[in-house]
Design a protein around this nucleic acid. Structure first.
Lengths: 204, 204
DNA sequence: TGTACATCAGTGAACGCGCGTTCACTGATGTAC
DNA sequence: TGTACATCAGTGAACGCGCGTTCACTGATGTAC
């Protein structure tokens, strides 16, 4: 890794990571559709053919950005859970849901990418694994609230996910009327979740 | 409107409507990003400069498609409400929510367009009006359940909207794990809504 | 009823653009001996 | 420790593409008289 500091070495050093970083930056700035491979290479300080050595197609690079997004997302949820480890399952779930919406709002572009069907996604193992981890993280917090072994925990987790994803999406895409204060919606809706999932669906 | 049937008249007859129809078709087929003005003109059987006479820019045409989408959406919700007019407010709300999700699933492309921030949207009066009508439709159904005059009806309506939008989005973009049956999630979550909005937020 | 003419709604060629990808190449690295 | 050489990771020019928009134009329509 002996990278010379001055006069731009011929080899980049860690172009793969630099490309992921540039792509992430572009997507955060202008949304998923603003990404282009050429501009991404430009930002990484490299000719636009260079990425080919690390990603076969532009879509592969995009999928990697989404996978990294899910990894950060899982880390943010885990951190919220850890911070409330000595509280009730209800409190942990709401903390995690708050963290969910906060992540979406502070990573608008990448969050949008993560949750939008895209052609290159199907073949990325990394992305599939990371997305699954996110689901399991949430599922676990829901199970802690409802009690273990219930057959309908999946449906309840899907309910929770739908609500927080809905709040996050409508907020990010500014689709609430102006009179609505997103902060208030988040607070009251998220707070209602533990009670809600206890009553969603048929009782045991 | 004397439109000759044979040998392609020089004038189209109703190019504006034909363009909206072609654009809608394209967006339903391949999502909002698959739209191009040239292909749209091609489908309408017209040169690609012709649309200029009806829409100043491609983005204006897109905004019109979104506005029409909201109008159909409102009609679908109204129809659901009408059909359950002799039932309880709870039943009417759930019927409307079902109609909401059904609309999204059967108009994936346009629904995606409607709920995604887009550059040309801000200046379309038609779009703003139609979107507001959708919100009011839902708001009304929620108010019927919670009782009139409550100050927190807005937050409750936002809650309902978030949940159904979340379910719709995750279903459309296939972001639920494979084990999840969207049909079951829709049924149980929507059914829980009337009770949920009575308990969301601080009691009066 | 006929005609002149303004207006409208099209055509098709051209412009300039940025894109993803390919290709022959070259500079740098690391390994075998 | 030195050197030959395969391999790797870059370059930069070129290809072909489709895009939105502009422009001078023309065919069709409708209206005033």
């Amino acid at each position: 890794m002996a990278r010379k500091a001055k006069s731009r070495p011929y080899h980049h050093g860690d172009l793969r990571e630099a490309l992921v970083a540039s792509a992430t930056e572009m997507i955060e700035e202008g949304g998923p559709s603003s990404f282009t491979l050429r501009e991404c290479a430009r930002r990484a300080g490299v000719s636009h053919a260079a990425p080919k050595n690390h990603f076969a197609t532009a879509e592969d690079l995009i999928a990697e950005v989404a996978a990294r997004g899910f990894e950060h997302f899982v880390a943010a949820l885990a951190q919220a859970a850890d911070r409330s480890v000595d509280q009730s399952p209800d409190a942990r779930l709401t903390a995690m849901c708050r963290a969910y919406v906060d992540f979406a709002r502070s990573h608008r572009g990448v969050y949008g990418l993560m949750f939008r069907e895209r052609s290159g996604f199907a073949k990325s193992e990394h992305l599939r694994t990371a997305a699954r981890a996110a689901w399991e993280q949430l599922h676990q917090a829901v199970a802690a609230v409802t009690g273990p072994g219930r057959r309908d925990t999946d449906a309840k987790a899907a309910h929770v996910w739908s609500l927080v994803h809905g709040i996050a999406s409508l907020t990010i895409d500014r689709r609430f009327p102006e009179i609505i204060d997103p902060e208030a919606v988040i607070a009251t809706s998220v707070a209602s979740l533990p009670a809600a999932i206890r009553s969603v669906g048929p009782p045991r």
